[in-house]
Design a binder for these strands. Structure first.
Length: 389
DNA sequence: AATGTACTCAACCGCAATCCA
DNA sequence: GTGGATTGCGGTTGAGTACAT
């Protein structure tokens, strides 16, 4: 039988869009929003299928799209993210503001892939091609560790990307609602059926929490000590984050509106990320403080002998925030800044982030860390050099 | 100037996931 | 629980352009 076409193809135009078509589509979406792509072309007076309209909008006409040459930093980010995520362009795009997955994919295929190949680096594995056979057992062991780290980081990035997307959705949802409440010009947006659905935030966080537990449980017990303790600790911290919103999200009419909540939660995940992933470890009294807080507020007893997940050599000093102070600082004006900071951690080629070096991911020993650093530095240096010439 | 080749990137295709009645 | 509709995503195509011969 074959697959039925996504829409009636007879008489529908294909190929490049004309400026007139662009204007029609833009005008329609500006006035009505995009509820159903299937019905949109007819309403907008376009001889196109809905899918084509959606694509044109998401990849070209959307106002929040940056076009033009990729910066060196963007290139570096794409290479780093591709090494971790593979061809998951939408996940990569979530970390590159204002760039579409299609654009990144094209740029990778036409520029970066070739450049890496020229450098003798396999664009799929991101390893030097001469190492492709993985000759010695030590190398394959390292490769396995890196692969494990990549998988782990990949899962985290995916959740983070999803959170960012949902946060954006929530913000736009609030904007729509504010817009309507202000009694602006009539719009289809006043029709509830066309409003974006509230994201399943608690589900996301619970999935996140569960992913922490399961992933941490797979990490071998080297510097992390007892894995079970870690998954419990992570679960406890994240439970407290969940419970800090009383187990439910405030309604948009409460003092803390939905998007604020999203930002707060994002921020706390970012802070948890700093603590557990970036290896930022508060000193002992702050750790005790955290345990005490969890105990008092959530009736969860944290065993005294619980080891901190990361080597104390990465102790961050007196500026460390205790969990209670994190909780109590929900509404400060730096929330947005912090969230953005955490989201862009990966983009910064900055060792202080610890993402690719300083004891950041999983159970790296010093050798692994050095190797990772060297690997990335090599790639980035090569990219920088080739970009100059 | 004409022709061939390589490159770019917008757009398409089709599968998979998700939504919803 | 089910099936159709819708949306998201990654792979691929091909028209337009730049460059080489």
């Amino acid at each position: 039988m074959g697959r039925s076409p996504c829409c009636e193809k007879v008489g529908l135009k294909k190929g490049p869009w004309t400026t007139e078509e662009d204007q029609k589509l833009l005008a329609y979406i500006e006035e009505h929003g995009h509820g159903s792509w299937r019905a949109l072309p007819a309403k907008a007076g376009l001889q196109r299928c809905g899918k084509s309209c959606r694509l044109r909008w998401t990849n070209y006409l959307r106002p929040d799209i940056k076009r033009g040459k990729f910066s060196l930093q963007e290139e570096q980010s794409i290479i780093q993210l591709h090494a971790l995520l593979g061809n998951r362009w939408s996940a990569i795009a979530a970390h590159l503001p204002k760039r579409t997955d299609n654009e990144i994919k094209n740029y990778w295929n036409t520029h970066l892939k070739k450049r890496l190949t020229k450098m003798g680096i396999d664009p799929v594995t991101h390893k030097p091609k001469c190492d492709a056979l993985g000759s010695s057992s030590g190398q394959s062991k390292d490769a396995a560790k890196l692969s494990h780290m990549a998988q782990w980081e990949s899962a985290r990035l995916e959740a983070e990307a999803r959170l960012v997307r949902e946060s954006k959705l929530a913000v736009s949802n609030n904007l729509y609602q504010s817009h309507n409440q202000l009694g602006s010009s009539p719009s289809v947006l006043t029709n509830n059926s066309t409003l974006p659905k509230m994201p399943p935030t608690l589900d996301v966080l619970k999935a996140w929490q569960s992913s922490w537990s399961t992933t941490m449980a797979t990490i071998p017990p080297t510097k992390y000590g007892n894995n079970n303790n870690h998954s419990h600790a992570n679960g406890a911290i994240l439970s407290s984050f969940l419970n800090s919103t009383n187990g439910t999200l405030e309604s948009p009419t409460s003092t803390l509106n939905f998007s604020d909540n999203m930002l707060n939660i994002s921020r706390n995940i970012g802070l948890a990320h700093d603590i557990f992933i970036n290896g930022v470890v508060p000193k002992q009294d702050v750790q005790d403080d955290m345990k005490c807080y969890i105990n008092n507020h959530h009736k969860m007893v944290i065993p005294e002998e619980m080891t901190y997940p990361i080597d104390n050599s990465t102790y961050m000093g007196d500026d460390a925030l205790s969990l209670p102070s994190i909780m109590e600082n929900f509404n400060d004006e730096h929330v947005q800044e912090n969230v953005e900071g955490h989201n862009s951690n990966l983009i910064n080629n900055d060792d202080s982030s610890g993402q690719f070096g300083n004891g950041g991911i999983g159970n790296c020993n010093d050798g692994d860390i050095e190797e990772n650093k060297n690997y990335w530095n090599n790639i980035l240096n090569l990219v920088t050099d080739s970009a100059v010439f």
